[in-house]
């Protein structure tokens, strides 16, 4: 019956030609939790998410989402998920409202008793602070507005598992906080969230579980407390200082392994 894990990944591998991107990834994500998949640029986060979202086939290994195998039953997996890709996947020519109505129709919200597409769209516009811009073409939106719309589109139809691939990259701090709030609201409602990030701070802020993807494997997987416990205890010393996740990352991956800055500049 209902497994306690919304996502299970075992010994998953994927290469692009000679480039071995995933070399045996193991991961289990508890239902209703927020899991951060942490990794530097090029670590393979997007590759893993695209496999889980049935957009890409793995070379070997098993992955199930909502109890369905991504390779064997992709249609069932797609019933259970939604994906917000690394780059906002919105229709620039349509208005924000039209984008939402489009996805609401494709998710058959009306037939599933979730309300009329127009009503679903209005509610999400309100929730993501896009009501004023609702009837403008998305081509005129700022980066933050696009991202909010993108995430709103992913929530239509209440999918039980949501993938967010670097949802705050390129956002200014205010827009980032809005996205964080949306993610927390989601998880509070019982949705399982797997988000990828290069920002340790983001993982610390949001995630119940943190998995670090490095050189094709999950090298660390646990709660924030567990991950922090991996840090060698402070020796001697007069000043007590909690190790930051960034220091843990550096310790685990080997010093100077290209750990990203916690918060990059933002642009619109």
């Amino acid at each position: 019956m209902a497994t306690e894990h919304a996502i299970r990944v075992e010994a998953l591998t994927k290469s692009y030609g000679d480039l071995e991107v995933l070399r045996g990834v193991d991961l289990a994500v508890a239902r209703g939790s927020i899991t951060a998949l942490l990794g530097a640029n090029g670590a393979g986060k997007t590759t893993l998410v695209r496999i889980l979202a049935t957009l890409l086939r793995a070379d070997a290994g098993v992955a199930t989402v909502g109890g369905a195998d991504v390779a064997g039953e992709p249609a069932r997996v797609r019933e259970a998920i939604s994906l917000t890709g690394q780059f906002a996947a919105v229709d620039e020519v349509l208005t924000g409202r039209e984008n939402l109505v489009l996805v609401a129709r494709l998710r058959h919200v009306e037939a599933r008793g979730l309300g009329k597409p127009a009503a679903v769209a209005s509610a999400l516009l309100e929730r993501f602070g896009l009501t004023d811009a609702a009837d403008r073409r998305v081509g005129t939106y700022s980066g933050g507005m696009r991202r909010r719309l993108d995430i709103a589109m992913s929530l239509i139809g209440d999918p039980p598992v949501v993938f967010l691939d670097e949802p705050t990259t390129g956002l200014d701090p205010q827009a980032r906080n809005e996205v964080w709030d949306a993610v927390r609201t989601l998880a509070a409602g019982g949705t399982t969230v797997l988000l990828t990030t290069q920002y340790l701070e983001e993982a610390e802020q949001l995630a119940h579980q943190i998995a670090i993807l490095h050189e094709g494997r999950i090298i660390v997987d646990g709660t924030l407390a567990e991950v922090k416990a991996l840090m060698p205890p402070a020796t001697v010393e007069y000043v007590e200082k909690q190790p930051s996740l960034e220091e843990i990352f550096l310790a685990v991956t080997g010093a100077g392994a290209g750990a990203p800055a916690p918060q990059g500049g933002e642009q619109r």
């Binding site: 049935t54 797609r78 998920i81 939604s82 994906l83 890709g85 780059f87 919105v90 229709d91």
Partner: peptide, 10 residues
Amino acid sequence: GGIFERFQSL
């Protein structure tokens, strides 16, 4: 634009 991938994951 990525919208095609969005459709493919629906």
